[in-house]
Computed example of a mutant assay.
Amino acid sequence: MKVGLLGGTFDPIHLGHSQMAKQLLAQTELDEIWFLPNKIPPHKAQPQASFAHRYNMVKLACTEHSAFKVCSIENELPSPSYTLHTLKALRTQYPLIKFSFIIGMDSAQSLPTWHHWRSIFDYCDIIACARPGWSADELSDDLHPLRANRRLAIVAINEADVASNTIRSAIKQGTIANQALNPSVIRYINQHRLYIGG
């Protein structure tokens, strides 16, 4: 089985995440996409919602597609949530699955700065999501050989104009982005009064 791993804080998960995952399922040979909520991301501001809340919201959002799953493995590992450590643990638990790690083109550009980044390819391939019209000139020189060897795939997707920080700001101001969130996620946020303070 071929599984795409989509990591993120998902604070909260929104329709932009699920739309991207659906496009990847349509354009690649992936059988499933597993959403991996970060416990403590090393390169981003820390999430406002707890891991448990973010995991529960992702689990609710995953019900919209049979090929979507949520994986809690980063909550079981030491912090911070380095990709390499996550991939090693997944390989141990699922030795027969072929994993591909899904990132945005901005993350692909910074990949050579990641923790032991070359070792990541011992455990998975990389799928980088690019906007339509992306040029190979934007790719770091370190990554061209990996693309030539098909360890790094570039997939053009149409990005939704939505961001988790914008959603959090709207909730704090007393509104909620109905067009950007799964209805079950909206209900969960309202039930637990997430993102209201702070």
Rank of each mutant, 00 (worst) to 15 (best):
P41E: 12
P47E: 07
F101T: 01
S110V: 00
I40V: 14
H144Q: 14
E159A: 08
N38G: 09
M1C: 01
P37N: 02
E138R: 14
H65L: 02
T113M: 11
Y188G: 08
N190S: 12
G16P: 06
L146F: 15
A128W: 12
A180L: 10
Y94H: 14
T175S: 11
H192E: 09
Y123I: 03
A136T: 08
A170W: 03
N190T: 12
E74P: 08
N38L: 09
V58M: 05
D122L: 01
F99A: 06
A52R: 12
R150S: 14
A163M: 06
N75A: 14
S66Y: 01
F121S: 05
R54V: 07
N56A: 15
A89L: 04
T9R: 10
F121Y: 12
E29V: 04
A148W: 00
S81Q: 06
Q48C: 05
I33V: 13
C124V: 13
G7K: 09
P183I: 12
E29S: 12
P132E: 06
C62N: 09
L194M: 11
F51Y: 13
E29C: 00
A136C: 00
S119E: 15
P78D: 10
E138A: 14
I97M: 08
S119H: 11
Q48L: 13
I102E: 02
K44G: 07
A163Q: 10
T86G: 08
E32P: 13
L152C: 08
Q179L: 12
I40F: 00
L25D: 08
A170H: 12
N56T: 02
V3A: 11
A26R: 09
N190A: 11
L152H: 04
P145Q: 06
L6Y: 13
C124R: 03
G174N: 07
P95T: 09
Y94R: 08
S184L: 11
G197Y: 14
L77Q: 05
L5R: 01
T175Y: 10
M1H: 06
G16Y: 07
P132T: 09
M20E: 00
L111K: 05
F121E: 09
I176H: 06
D141K: 10
L25S: 05
G174Q: 03
N38H: 03
D142L: 04
M1R: 07
P145R: 11
T92P: 00
N182S: 09
Y123T: 05
A89T: 05
I33C: 09
F99V: 06
F68S: 00
D31Y: 00
S100K: 15
L146C: 11
Q19D: 14
N75D: 15
T92I: 02
V3L: 12
R147I: 13
R131Y: 04
P132Q: 09
K44T: 08
A108W: 13
R131K: 13
L96P: 00
R147N: 12
L84Y: 03
I13E: 05
T83V: 13
